[in-house]
Design a protein around this nucleic acid. Structure first.
Lengths: 181, 181
DNA sequence: AACGAAACGGACCAGCCGGTCCGCTTGCTG
DNA sequence: CAGCAAGCGGACCGGCTGGTCCGTTTCGTT
C-alpha cells in the first residue's frame, strides 16, 4: 500500500466490507454492487474505488472470515483433549458457515492469491488438529481438513432447505458421528 | 394439451430437454438459453415456444429426473431387506445428484406445481422405505426423506470440490454410517 | 482560513440475457 | 400435388449489472 487512507475512506471501507458480508450471506453470491453500496450508505462508485472488481470485494470478505477461523484453530491447538478440540472447531466452523452460507459456497472457486494463501494456512492448522485427534484415537476415518470442511459446509447448506430450526445441529452431529471410532 | 405435436416438434422437444439437462449439469443453473439451444441444434426461439420461460424448462428437466427416482424407489420397496434397500436407494440418489449436480441444487426452490407434486410423491415413497428400515432396526436416527435427501445432495456437492475422484463415495459412506445403529 | 489532494457519487456506457415477433420453411392431409 | 397450419429461427427489444468518469465535496495541513 502506498499511503494511509483518509479517515472517511477508512470508515467507508469498513462499512462496505460489513455490508458486503451481510449482503452476500443474506441475498446470495449474486447480490448486485448497487445493493451492497446501498446497505453501506455509499455510492456504488465508491465501492469500485476500494475494490477494483466484484470478485476482489468477495475475496476481501472471504479473507476476513478465514482469518477469524485461523485464529480460532490456533487457540484450539492449545487444548489438551485433541478430540474435544477438533469437535469444538467443527461446531465453530459450522456456525461460521451458517452465518455466511452464500459466501462459503464460492470459496473453493476463489482464485485470489491472498485467499489461496489464507486457505492454505488454515488447512495446515486444521490438519494439525486432526492429526492430534487421530493420534489420541478420537477419530477413525482417513479424512483431511478439506474433507471435513466440505462435509461441514455442505451439511450446513443442506440444513438451510429444512424448515426445522435445529436441522443444522442434527446434520453436523451426523457428520461428527461419522468420524468417531 | 390441445393437440399432438408435429413429428419434428416432438423430436426437437426431446433434444431440448436432453441438451438442457446436460447443460444445467455441466455449466450450472445459470446457463443461458442460447447455450442450451446451441447444444440442441435449434434456434433459441424454438426453446421458448416449447417452454414459455427458463424456469418452466428447468422444471420440466427436474420432473424427468424425479420420475426416474420415483420408479427406482418403488422397485426397492419390493425388497425384503429394508436396510439394504434404503442403502441402495441412497447410492442411487447419490449417482443422480452427481450426474445433475447443478440441477438438484435448485430443486428445493422450484415452485412449479407439477414438480411439487412429484417431490411430494417421491418423499412419501422414500419415507416408506425409511419406516420399513427403522422397523427392522436398520437405522437409528430420527431422520425423514427430506433430511436424507439434503444430506446426500450436499455430500455430493461437497465432493465436487475435492480433487480425489472417489471423494463422493467416501462422503456418502460417512452419511450412511451416521444413520446406522 | 485557505488550498491541494483525496474521496465521493451519480450519470453514463457496454455487454449480456430472457423473452417477443414475424417472415420463411416444413410436415401433414385431402 | 397443393394448400395450410404448425413450426422454425434469428433479428430485435428492454432491463439489468459490472465497471468508468468527472464535476463536486470533504479532509488534513500549513
Amino acid at each position: 500500500m502506498a499511503t494511509a487512507l483518509r479517515a472517511d475512506a477508512q470508515r467507508n471501507r469498513g462499512r462496505i466490507l460489513d455490508a458486503a458480508a451481510e449482503a452476500f450471506a443474506e441475498v446470495g453470491p449474486d447480490v448486485t454492487i448497487d445493493e451492497i453500496a446501498r446497505r453501506a450508505g455509499v455510492g456504488h462508485g465508491t465501492v469500485f474505488r476500494r475494490f477494483p472488481t466484484k470478485d476482489a470485494l468477495r475475496a476481501a470478505v472471504i479473507q476476513v472470515r478465514l482469518d477469524e477461523m485461523l485464529v480460532q484453530a490456533k487457540v484450539l491447538l492449545g487444548r489438551a483433549d485433541a478430540g474435544a478440540a477438533l469437535e469444538e472447531f467443527v461446531w465453530f466452523g459450522a456456525e461460521c458457515a451458517r452465518r455466511d452460507r452464500a459466501l462459503f459456497e464460492g470459496v473453493e472457486k476463489c482464485l485470489d492469491v491472498d485467499v489461496s494463501a489464507a486457505k492454505h494456512e488454515l488447512h495446515e492448522t486444521v490438519d494439525k488438529l486432526i492429526r492430534r485427534a487421530r493420534r489420541q484415537g478420537a477419530i477413525r476415518r482417513e479424512l483431511d481438513s478439506r474433507d471435513i470442511g466440505a462435509l461441514v459446509g455442505s451439511a450446513i447448506q443442506a440444513s438451510m432447505h429444512s424448515e426445522r430450526p435445529d436441522a443444522w445441529r442434527r446434520y453436523i452431529q451426523v457428520v461428527l458421528d461419522g468420524l468417531r471410532p
